[in-house]
């Protein structure tokens, strides 16, 4: 767009619209704001409202999970206290913003993961560990962080740790020329296999892990002997995407997947795994090209992850 010097005001207004309607820039600005200020930003304009609510929802999920987990595990008081500040826990008198701030600062989820993985002493050498996204639906960084925590907590370092969600199970297709660890919507499987599988980590060609190749590398060349599941019952029940994934995965397990036994708090469980059926599911031998991807889309959209809306009603 060309502007004369006299048009500077017009240029400035256009520039502002250009800069402050840009989702990437707004996200970067909003993540430094307090929750209270974020909700103020909802009132600026529609674009800001959309972005501010999205950023706020991500933060609020931490708090929601805290409450769900605490309700389910009242005996595990230690998880709810910040060891850096002796004895300090969320005070029921705290206002909403302060509680969100506390949960974020304390990194509550990391402690939950650590507590859940304590019982996993007999997992096979190579197994697939799956767990829910713990409320982080969009932030790959957070997922990787928690995945790495799970991996560190396991007795067997050879475990393939997979933060399970719809995309990760199904392995959505992506552009082969783009390094997958730069594609944040791709799901965790790609990122985890790239960054956390020790055998692939050193000198791996990142572009080779994309799309079907990635699935092939992980599932055909990794000798998965069992699947370990752990999550909390509340988180599981609340997370429709995870519910979908577990149900999909259960088709390939021997034994009965029982909600009470498999997902009862810290009661982690592992199942023998029908790898052949699973591979046929992931890489079908028949059907038109993209048939599995069509199925993937269908599965994802049956249960849209719109539950974040409820967070505003807390």
């Amino acid at each position: 767009m060309d502007y004369e010097i006299d048009d500077y005001d017009d240029y400035f207004v256009d520039l502002c619209q250009h800069v402050f309607a840009n989702e990437l820039i707004l996200t970067k600005i909003f993540r430094h704001l307090s929750l209270r200020q974020l909700f103020q930003c909802c009132l600026v304009c529609k674009t800001w409202q959309t972005e501010a609510r999205r950023v706020a929802a991500n933060r609020s999920q931490s708090l929601q999970i805290y409450h769900l987990f605490r309700t389910d595990h009242p005996e595990d008081d230690v998880v709810f206290r910040d060891p850096a500040i002796v004895g300090e826990a969320i005070d029921e008198e705290m206002d909403y913003c302060s509680r969100v701030h506390w949960v974020e600062k304390y990194d509550f989820k990391a402690h939950v993961i650590h507590a859940m993985s304590e019982g996993l002493w007999s997992v096979p050498d190579i197994c697939l560990v799956v767990y829910g996204s713990l409320g982080e639906d969009v932030k790959l960084t957070q997922r990787l962080y928690h995945t790495e925590m799970v991996r560190k907590s396991l007795p067997q370092t050879g475990c393939l740790v997979l933060n399970l969600n719809s995309q990760s199970l199904i392995g959505c297709p992506t552009t082969s020329s783009v390094p997958i660890h730069k594609i944040t919507h791709f799901g965790d499987l790609a990122a985890v296999s790239l960054l956390l599988l020790p055998k692939y980590k050193t000198g791996s060609d990142v572009t080779a892990f994309s799309g079907a190749n990635m699935r092939e590398k992980v599932f055909l060349k990794t000798d998965i002997k069992a699947i370990v599941l752990f999550t909390t019952s509340s988180i599981f029940q609340d997370n429709r995407n995870l519910y979908l994934d577990i149900n999909s995965l259960s088709k390939f397990m021997t034994g009965t997947l029982n909600n009470q036994t498999a997902f009862g708090g810290y009661n982690s469980a592992y199942f023998s795994f029908n790898k052949r059926d699973f591979l046929n599911y992931l890489v079908p031998n028949e059907g038109p090209p993209g048939a599995d991807d069509m199925e993937a889309r269908e599965l994802i959209y049956i249960y849209p992850a719109d539950y974040t809306q409820d967070l505003f009603d807390i």
Partner: peptide, 30 residues
């Protein structure tokens, strides 16, 4: 971009939505 975002963030902290709109020339489309 991060440096710019932090700077803008510091400028809008504590401001009302009206003040933010005025400062950043944002049209209220509600």
């Amino acid at each position: 971009v991060e440096v710019g975002a932090k700077h803008i963030c510091n400028k809008i902290k504590g401001k009302s939505c009206t003040e933010v709109r005025e400062m950043l020339k944002i049209h209220n489309d509600f």
